[in-house]
Design a protein around this nucleic acid. Sequence first.
DNA 1: GTCTATAAGATGATAGAC
DNA 2: GTCTATCATCTTATAGAC
Lengths: 194, 194
Amino acid sequence: MAASAPAATAGKILDIAERLVQTRGYNGFSYADISSELRIRNASVHYHFPSKSDLGKRLVGRYRENFLAVLATLEQDHADARRRLRAYVAIWSRVLRDRDRMCLCGMMAAEIASLPRSVRSELKRFFNENEAWLLRVLRAGQKAGTLRLAGTPLIEARLLTMGLEGAMLLARSYGEPRRFEEIAARLLSGLGIH
Amino acid sequence: MAASAPAATAGKILDIAERLVQTRGYNGFSYADISSELRIRNASVHYHFPSKSDLGKRLVGRYRENFLAVLATLEQDHADARRRLRAYVAIWSRVLRDRDRMCLCGMMAAEIASLPRSVRSELKRFFNENEAWLLRVLRAGQKAGTLRLAGTPLIEARLLTMGLEGAMLLARSYGEPRRFEEIAARLLSGLGIH
DNA sequence: GTCTATAAGATGATAGAC
DNA sequence: GTCTATCATCTTATAGAC
């Protein structure tokens, strides 16, 4: 009999592993880190996620699904492309200020060469879907005349993603989330958002 | 008696470790990776670099010095700010195309939370000196009227650094260096460089 | 400067009891 | 679903011979 709701432990494991990857990287945490924090045994973690690559794959999959769900609500909450993009940036600002996390997928992108294949393909899906969302928003804003794009929507979408990921990376290394927000504001102002 | 020139091994160790950090990260390689590639024993690597943090510190220190030396030659070779910035971007493009490397310090920035303290301070120095160089070039270009800055020189310097680091990160995860070059060109065009 | 030998601890993982 | 027990392997490191 489970001590709590069914599969509750699996979720807690994912929560802890997620934070560990976001702060220390996939190669920077072990099952022992999770089991000690959850106060269960190492073997129990293996029961839920037999291998570390299983855990990594599920981690990226869940992160991608949750993130896409948030993006969907952004579209419902805001009709204007400028508001959508401000809200998009605010997501990352909160991630960074939540115990100094990096985007899970940005962190794993750095480790791409030492990641299990199954994890890599989940990663690529995240970035593709993120890009597709930004592309839609940028095109809509351009059509509505609320955004001013210097390049093609695709280039601007990629500049935004790469710029924000790089800004998170550097701001974290300084321990100064303000550095992220400064550059995020600059990226938005480049699109005519003030 | 040494098998080759004095300290030649230490340099080879640094070369191998540098590539390993740039591709797999500080937490993604071990002394065994180095000793097997150099075909010496694990203990021999420890003779040159007693602990991994020693190695990490020297690695970042050497990288920073070499990089700053290259930037100095860029200033001698090119009087024009636009040419200097094009050459600056070309450095990173070559890094990326050299066996899929990431900027050593960008890679370590991702791992900041699990890095030895001594390594962290070397890292910060790299980014500070890199920013100072860009700041000088941007100010000179602005004064000469050869660059068109949308924000302050400081913001533009940081956008450039963060944008290029993020572009390397993402381009590598796709295995498509072209993605880096696309965004690098976009960043330069934002400064009036075509 | 490199080697052999060795060690303590971490890491990813499995078998089988409860 | 969690536990104890156990595993092979890897990792960082040191002592001392050559």
